[in-house]
Design a protein around this nucleic acid. Structure first.
Lengths: 227, 227
DNA sequence: TATTGTGAAGCCTTTCACAGCA
DNA sequence: TGCTGTGAAAGGCTTCACAATA
């Protein structure tokens, strides 16, 4: 950080000073992070932008520019220190602390998420699960995945979100329930929603929404297979 | 289609004549399609670009321009016919026919996908499932999800992909198996791979890859919650 | 010497604004 | 009249090319 200092340290937290960070950069940061975890697992200490670029399928200048938005993390002539870069990316993304999550809808997908190991590795902690029929859920999944969290009736959503300091809700209900659940999450003062259900969902202005549509990934793949 | 005819009909198939279609447009088409399905379910016959834009959180001009790459689908003064537009989008994406899929790795996530209803609705058909320990899988999931497809040993992948005309492989193995499975799928002459495992995967030039990293969606959400 | 950090150029995408049309 | 289709302008992102430097 020298000429134009791109980062401010406020109370020990790194923040982008110039908030004109491209959305695409943020998306790529996630993928760079996966790359760092992978390289760390292979005991690589240092990685050049060229190496990172080739793993993540992007241009090397892109990689350097993406990092440069947030500071000077590299060593000229060498590359980037894998451990340090990993730490920096986590700080930038805000995932250098635990995020407490509720899963709403404990069907097949929901129960898969309850035991999804990659969430835990990344400091994402599912601390509550809700369903319309908690007793049936327990019968359905308990012998298979154990009992990672108690399954509660969805009526208790607001109370429990508040009591357990839950900031993010994941919707894994059937599509016809998705909007209702979103409304309940908003009512419970959730901060962000990740919608796994294949239905469009509206939120209020102050609740961030991300959709994760499985078929969209397939649609995209198929388009490029067909054209 | 009038001045610059953006579409050719070759053997009954619509194709983009000028292939300079933005990638972002293709991503949005998927979301417009979900919107159309939703509106159709609500018995809406016609939708303006403004309505579609507001549901999909984009600009109305964007919506019109996206469609205009492929033809003139709208009616001035009216909007777009929901059913027709849905059909057009499916044609453009190439999902107006069945796509045969194999799921590799029948753990919690894999078995959730085997019975994921939205795939079927969209003409995505899972016609084979593979695991390292098929007998154990059957014990694990059969009483819960029934037996949508027979679970086969992964050794039979190449043979079965060929015999069943499978074009797409979905990887839902633990991360440490992902690359090996990708290599086997490539060896089996698969056309495209959708990687659900949280590990980076390399493919050969002629095999298209899409990653669907759950934590990336969370990372992105969290970044915007933190900043 | 190898590789980063970065202005500047070029390219791509979005938005505006309005002509064209049902 | 109301909404689409689209040229042109604006804006944003990526890539190039090279100075800076460990």
């Amino acid at each position: 950080m020298k000429k134009k200092g791109k980062i401010t340290d406020i109370e020990g937290k790194k923040m982008a000073k110039f908030s004109k960070i491209p959305e695409a950069t943020i998306r790529r940061l996630s993928s760079y992070l996966k790359c760092m975890v992978d390289l760390e697992g292979k005991n690589e200490k240092v990685a050049s932008s060229a190496v990172i670029a080739s793993i993540c399928n992007v241009n090397a200048a892109q990689v350097r520019k993406d990092f440069a938005y947030f500071g000077e993390f590299g060593i000229r002539g060498m590359g980037y220190n894998v451990k340090d870069l990993k730490r920096h990316i986590k700080e930038i993304l805000g995932i250098n602390r635990e995020w407490r999550i509720a899963v709403v809808g404990v069907g097949n997908m929901g129960s898969a998420l309850l035991v999804y190991k990659d969430f835990l590795k990344q400091n994402y902690k599912i601390v509550a699960a809700f369903d319309l029929y908690p007793e049936m859920v327990i019968g359905r999944i308990s012998e298979r995945v154990g009992k990672p969290v108690e399954i509660l009736h969805v009526d208790r959503l607001k109370e429990v979100v508040s009591a357990r300091n839950i900031e993010i809700g994941i919707i894994t209900t059937p599509p016809q329930e998705a909007q209702k659940v979103a409304d309940q999450l908003i009512e419970a003062n959730i901060k962000g929603i990740l919608n796994f259900s294949p239905a469009p969902v509206r939120t209020s202005e102050n609740v961030k929404l991300r959709n994760l549509f499985f078929t969209s990934a397939l649609d995209n793949l198929v388009y490029y297979l067909s054209n």
